[in-house]
Design a protein around this nucleic acid. Structure first.
Length: 677
DNA sequence: GAGCACTGC
């Protein structure tokens, strides 16, 4: 065991990088504040002394950018100040968007309590599948950014809102960026609308410039608020390490031996690293000196069940210390109080999209400075803390300031279809906060054109209009529309819902993993994965949608329940468009033909070595091992697939066997119809 | 014969 060689540059005080942490309160468990002292608590928040100034700015400027730090209270207080000042009078509504569902619900809960109202009455929230708000009574509405974006499709000027607050704007989620672009347009048509953008980083000047560009002066202003966090001392490693997982385990071990009480949170990029780190720790436990706190090793990542995730919140008993190895989920989504030590390996996994190859992949990259700062801040929520960075201070200084906005690294097909549906046809003139790569826009336009969603004039076709409304990807929406011709709406709805969720099958480690594999095979359909998913869903509903049944059949209960909700939602769209949801009565051929109408661009041909070649581009494709076609050659030699992802190899997931001529027969349906018209 | 951060409609 080596001893720690950290260099301590001193305590981070006001004005340090820690000022930029966010006030996200997305914890899974959150005790409601006692109503007894609520009023005085509100008055003691740092934001309280800026109340008059904030209200003045909102009165005067169409756009107010609020830079606020952790715990300053902007998310909970600002909408209430606005309501008290009369911004929600005369039927007006104040909206506050959040990038995550949990945040929207938990914040709404707290504010409803503070405002002494039942949740869903004066204060409510709206997320997909849950609208806890009242059309006429709700004055403050917390919602996901995706939900507000969707609302623009119905009400392009968002006319019911007097003030729209885009919270956590520094995260730059896809829908936050799209909303900001649209809101800049809306403001020109509705000068009375007020926009508040809340950001935790100083990137705020970029947003200020964005709203001031080609607008009259006095358009926007910035207000900075102090936070209410404990100081966190930051320590760096002097030399780089070869194995950050091992080092992270060592550092956590030393913290346990040498530091005052407080839990340890270790940030690692992925599940595999987390498991290895905890194994290293567990192996050392037998040599733990007498008198040292017992180590409670815990993992936290999105792949775990809710039940498993909740374990990190159990308070550590006397003379024990929790060491939690987590992914980025602990950076903003989940807040664990009691953490006083953070170990930051300096890496994160992000999704990358390559518009040239149209391939998505996951890459492990260095964290951004903003992200590293946010991680450090996790040590100072309830008491002063320490953050150990497993890299040098010069490395920290060379980190990019923030993670590239999602809009620059994602497939733009669906967003562009939606923008077109809003009447934004000239994408080159659209004022992006950060423009997506032009290659990405071109690819999206090209794929929309070949799918028959936009015509030669670049405008939406009648089919495109419908597809833009469906809350699923273009391929899937196309398949749902075609189900009418193949008389299989019932089954296609289920398949659409099941392909919209991830990780249907649970794969535990070791021996249980093999058993889970056998359970999974019980649902196997000869024809491929789409029908296998259909079988799993039907069995789930047949056996009462029970969680214990899921457990014994290696299915993820949370995922399955979500698929049920999605299916119900899609079914409503089907009836709105007058599409029947009849059953194919077991005619798998018709079902597979319908699949081709959605996935016609994702065709592939089997070759002798067990790999496939894509119809488009003749690329070498490997079957993902979770596919039922992993070990089996399809009789016809041809398949369509749901998605393609680049890992070490290019892999395809969710395959179904087809006849090759179907690709021509059913693929170009909308395109040729449009051409003929 | 192999694994995958996180969100959202």
């Amino acid at each position: 065991m080596t001893s720690l060689t950290f260099w301590k540059p001193g305590t981070a005080g006001p004005g340090s990088s820690l000022d930029r942490a966010t006030e996200q309160e997305g914890n899974i468990i959150q005790s409601a504040p006692s109503s007894f002292s609520m009023e005085s608590q509100r008055e003691r928040l740092p934001i309280a002394k800026h109340k008059m100034k904030l209200l003045h700015c909102v009165e005067k400027y169409p756009v107010t950018i609020v830079v606020g730090q952790t715990g300053c209270g902007k998310t909970t207080q600002l909408p209430q100040y606005l309501m008290e000042a009369g911004w929600a009078a005369d039927g007006n509504v104040i909206a506050c968007t959040q990038p995550r569902r949990v945040a929207a619900t938990s914040v709404a809960n707290r504010v409803a309590a503070e405002a002494n109202t039942t949740l869903g009455d004066k204060v409510g929230y709206t997320i997909r599948f849950e609208d806890v708000s009242d059309k006429t009574r709700t004055r403050i509405r917390y919602m996901t950014d995706g939900m507000l974006f969707r609302e623009t499709l119905v009400d392009p000027l968002l006319s019911r809102y007097s003030v729209i607050m885009i919270d956590e704007a520094h995260e730059r989620s896809l829908y936050t960026d799209l909303l900001l672009g649209i809101l800049k347009k809306i403001l020109r048509k509705r000068p009375s609308l007020r926009l508040i953008i809340s950001s935790a980083t100083l990137d705020a000047t970029q947003l200020l410039n964005y709203f001031e560009a080609s607008n009259p002066p006095d358009m926007a202003t910035i207000i900075s608020l102090e936070g209410r966090m404990y100081p966190v001392e930051v320590s760096y490693l002097q030399d780089p390490v070869a194995d950050y997982v091992k080092k992270a385990a060592e550092v956590a071990w030393h913290i346990n031996l040498e530091s005052k009480p407080g839990d340890v949170l270790v940030f690692l990029p992925g599940r595999e690293d987390i498991e290895r780190c905890l194994e290293e720790l567990v192996e050392m436990i037998p040599v733990l000196p007498r008198g040292a706190p017992q180590i409670i090793p815990l993992a936290l990542h999105a792949g775990m069940s809710t039940e498993e995730q909740l374990r990190v919140f159990n308070p550590a008993e006397r003379n024990t210390r929790k060491i939690i190895a987590a992914t980025n989920i602990a950076e903003a989504s989940v807040t664990i109080d009691g953490v006083r030590y953070v170990v930051d390996c300096g890496f994160v996994k992000i999704r990358i999209y390559n518009p040239t190859t149209t391939l998505a992949s996951l890459a492990t990259v260095p964290v951004s400075a903003a992200s590293a700062t946010q991680r450090a801040g996790r040590a100072g929520r309830t008491a002063p803390g320490v953050c150990y960075r497993l890299y040098s201070e010069s490395t920290f200084n060379s980190l990019s300031p923030s993670t590239p906005p999602e809009i620059t690294r994602t497939d733009m097909t669906t967003p562009i279809l939606q923008l077109k549906s809003l009447g934004i046809d000239d994408l080159m003139k659209f004022e992006w906060v950060s423009a997506p790569p032009s290659e990405s826009v071109l690819r999206a336009l090209e794929s929309l054109a070949t799918a028959g969603m936009i015509g030669e004039d670049g405008r939406l076709t009648a089919v495109g209009e419908k597809v833009a409304e469906f809350p699923v990807d273009v391929n899937i929406a196309r398949m749902l529309l075609c189900s009418k011709d193949f008389k299989c709406g019932e089954e296609i709805l289920t398949i659409a819902a099941m392909t919209s969720v991830q990780d249907v099958f649970v794969i535990p480690e070791g021996a249980p993993g093999a058993i889970a594999e056998l359970e999974r095979r019980k649902f196997t359909a000869e024809e491929g994965d789409h029908l296998t998913l259909l079988n799993a869903y039907n069995a789930f509903t047949r056996y009462g949608r029970s969680s214990s049944w899921c457990k014994s059949h290696a299915l993820n209960f949370r995922t399955m329940s979500r698929a049920v909700s999605i299916r119900a939602q899609l079914k409503k769209y089907m009836s709105r468009f007058g599409l029947p949801t009849e059953s194919c009565q077991g005619d798998a051929k018709r079902l597979r033909q319908c699949l081709v109408s959605g996935y016609w661009r994702n065709g592939a041909r089997w070759v002798d070595d067990g790999t496939y070649r894509s119809v488009k581009g003749n690329k070498i494709l490997h079957v993902h091992p979770t596919s039922v076609l992993f070990t089996r050659k399809p009789r016809s030699g041809w398949v369509i697939f749901h998605e393609l992802e680049e890992t070490k190899k290019t892999q395809v997931r969710i395959l179904t066997e087809i006849e090759p001529d179907w690709l021509l027969d059913y693929g170009h349906k909308f395109y040729s119809k449009h051409e003929a018209a």
